[in-house]
Simulated assay, not measured.
Amino acid sequence: MSNMVALLPPSGNSSPSRPHCLIVEDQVLVALSIEAYLEETGFEIEGPIRSGSEALFWLRAHTPQAVILDYGLADGSCTALARELRRRDIPFLVYSGYRLGSDLPLELHGVPWIEKPCRREELMTALQTILVGHVRASIGFA
């Protein structure tokens, strides 16, 4: 995954070689599995955070480079959190046991949706895609 790290710009709260990823997931074992895998591939992990309200509070003082977000959190759906991530232009993907349906909230339109369970490589590919797409858009190569 060194190609991914090389494409990431330095940010105020991470080193260029270890991008920050926030995990918002209410299932502890799932969150720990994601955390272990991402650390192995060179990420610095924030969280895991179990609720949308806790994540919104955390975001007041922090800006991760990416977020992996479960749709159903300890305090309900991730809609308010997704709205804030969009407002702040923080790239995110949804990793959820819920099937992607036609009643998708507006805040989640166009967001990569990975259904649990999936192969680790599928999750990493989606994460790399949102990070690279965000970097390209920020420098005018959308």
Rank of each mutant, 00 (worst) to 15 (best):
residue 51 S to R: 00
residue 82 A to L: 05
residue 5 V to M: 13
residue 23 I to Q: 06
residue 66 A to R: 09
residue 71 Y to R: 01
residue 10 P to L: 11
residue 57 F to L: 15
residue 76 G to R: 00
residue 16 P to D: 00
residue 1 M to P: 02
residue 126 A to M: 04
residue 111 V to G: 07
residue 137 A to F: 07
residue 20 H to C: 07
residue 89 D to R: 12
residue 11 S to W: 04
residue 127 L to W: 01
residue 76 G to E: 00
residue 16 P to S: 06
residue 2 S to Y: 14
residue 52 G to E: 00
residue 104 L to G: 06
residue 122 E to V: 14
residue 64 P to T: 12
residue 85 L to H: 00
residue 98 Y to I: 12
residue 92 F to Y: 08
residue 76 G to W: 03
residue 97 G to W: 12
residue 37 Y to F: 14
residue 106 L to V: 15
residue 126 A to P: 05
residue 109 H to Q: 13
residue 106 L to S: 14
residue 43 F to L: 08
residue 109 H to I: 14
residue 137 A to D: 11
residue 90 I to G: 05
residue 126 A to G: 09
residue 140 G to E: 01
residue 87 R to D: 13
residue 66 A to I: 07
residue 42 G to A: 04
residue 9 P to H: 11
residue 108 L to S: 10
residue 62 H to Q: 14
residue 71 Y to Q: 01
residue 111 V to F: 09
residue 47 G to W: 00
residue 58 W to I: 12
residue 1 M to Q: 12
residue 139 I to P: 04
residue 9 P to C: 02
residue 18 R to E: 06
residue 101 G to I: 13
residue 27 Q to P: 01
residue 4 M to A: 15
residue 95 Y to M: 03
residue 140 G to Q: 05
residue 131 L to Q: 14
residue 105 P to I: 12
residue 41 T to Q: 13
residue 39 E to F: 02
residue 138 S to D: 06
residue 78 C to K: 03
residue 69 L to W: 10
residue 134 H to Y: 06
residue 13 N to S: 14
residue 55 A to G: 04
residue 82 A to E: 00
residue 85 L to V: 06
residue 98 Y to T: 13
residue 30 V to H: 03
residue 115 E to L: 08
residue 105 P to V: 11
residue 73 L to K: 08
residue 96 S to T: 15
residue 59 L to M: 09
residue 130 I to H: 03
residue 130 I to E: 09
residue 12 G to H: 12
residue 22 L to G: 00
residue 91 P to N: 12
residue 47 G to S: 01
residue 73 L to V: 08
residue 104 L to C: 14
residue 114 I to T: 08
residue 132 V to Y: 01
residue 83 R to T: 08
residue 35 E to Y: 05
residue 8 L to C: 14
residue 86 R to D: 10
residue 52 G to N: 06
residue 4 M to F: 15
residue 51 S to I: 09
residue 74 A to C: 02
